[in-house]
Structure formats: C-alpha cells, structure tokens
Amino acid sequence: MSTTKHHGAASGAELLTVSGLDVEYPLKGFRRKPFRALTDINISVKPGETLGLVGESGSGKTTLGRAVLGLAPVTRGTITFEGNDISHATRAERRRLGRDLQVVFQDPYTSLNPSMEIGSILAEPLGVQGQSPAQARARVRELLDQVGLPSDAINRLPREFSGGQRQRVAIARALALSPKLIVCDEPVSALDLSTQAVVLDLFLQIQRDTGVSYLFVSHDLDVVRHISHRVAVMYHGEIVEQGPAHVVTRSPEHPYTQRLLLASPVPDPDRQAKRRNDRHRLLDAQRLEEASPISA
C-alpha cells in the first residue's frame, strides 16, 4: 500500500476522534423514551487516512457521519477535530470548521440545488469564508478541472448533468476550501457500476494529491474494501468490529461481518455457488451457537 506510506497514514496524531458517542432523537409524544440511533461509538481518523464505515440500512452509519458534521444531536460523548471538541459547536464555530471539514452526500440529484448554476454552487462555501468573487471564480475553474468537468459547466444547471457528473460537482464543492477531512455518505451508491469506478478513482487520486482524509460511509463491503485503510462495521447503532481494511473485509471475526461478507454475491457462478454454501453453513453454525446454552 504505497499510498499509506506517502502520507504516513499509519502514524501521527489523530485528525478526528469520536469517543463514547451516543446520538438520540427525541420522539413525539409525552414522556416517550428518545430513539437511540448510536450507542458508544469510538472511532478515529488520522491525516491522509480513509476510515470506511460499513453497515446495512438503519445501522446508524449515516447518522455517525451526520453527527461529525453537526447535523445530528450529540447526546453523550465527544467528537474531537484537530484537538478541539466540536460535539456542540456553534454556528460560528461550524463556519470556521467548514474550511477543514466537508461532505459529499449520496444522492447527486438532491445534494445540489436544482435552481442554482454549478458556478454559484461551487462558489457558495468560498463566499462564506469571505473570498472575493474574483478569487472564487478562479478557484471554481481550478476545481472543475480537478474533477474533470469542462469549464463551461459554470453557467449550467445541475439537471444538465448525468448522475456521475453531478457527483463530481459535489466532490468539487467539498474540495473548494481544501479541507482536511471529507465525510462521504454513500457517495457512489446511486451510481452505475462503470460510473462508480470513475468516481472511486477520483476519490483515490484526490487523496494522493492533497492528503485529505475520508470518513467513507457505504453499505457495500467491496467499495469500502477498495477505498479504505481501516474499516469499522456498524450494526444496530453500534460498532461491532473495526481494524485494518484487509483484515475486516476478508477474514472478519464478528458473526455479523461474516454474514455480511458471505451475503455479497461474486460474479462467477461456481465461486458464487461455493460462497452460497459457505453462507448456509455459517448461518447454520451461528444458529446452533445461538441456541446452545453453553455459549450464552
């Protein structure tokens, strides 16, 4: 893994640390217990490193990303970014954080304002940080170039672009302020297979060029394996397993991760038949284990 050596991802101080994080959403109705979305989350991301978060729908992986961004309420625990506690950052602190902490969302159709031109979408974060329009315009050109979009895109609306192109606009917006960490929330799930490959290449290239860190959320174990240095597996709002990507995504220890790995089909009939049998054996074994009183 040459890239890790490049930026020394394995060493150095943590960029982002989440410790003991709980997120609860109050439910409507008198004296109802709040809904617990996350329980006791502990993760960290080093500079230049990608932490993959994998889990199924409702596992809380998206909520964790949103909590880091300040879009989900932190009930307990702390989120530390570059040594500062940002668990309850104010809007003004968030504005300052916006320079170093950015986001790419899943849905390229709703993450760009349909009534704004690409140019003003990309200039928005620059304007917030007080850049002059002329500076912003120059930077926008640079950004479009960086994600491989033509410079005439500036005056066009999002709907004139395909899903993959829009996702690249979203990536350019995240890159605008040269952040240190980008939270990527299922950024390739809505894309076709070949477009996904293009966008994943772009993510890797940007990391090599700029040394940015990713918190990369996905439901797809293959995607997470491909792009992450380390992987954390989420299940029912908790992290059940985390470690180096090749370990967690190839020989997992937790029963849930094992199930997840064997459930994802491979593109060859015979290998898939074998994987299917492995999965059935695993499920039987896990069922037995659950039933037996000794392990409990």
Partner: peptide
C-alpha cells in the same frame, strides 16, 4: 445540509 456544513 451541505449549506449548513459550509457554515451558512
């Protein structure tokens, strides 16, 4: 959400 993250 993206605008919030940008600090608007």
């Amino acid at each position: 959400d993206a605008a919030r993250v940008a600090g608007l």
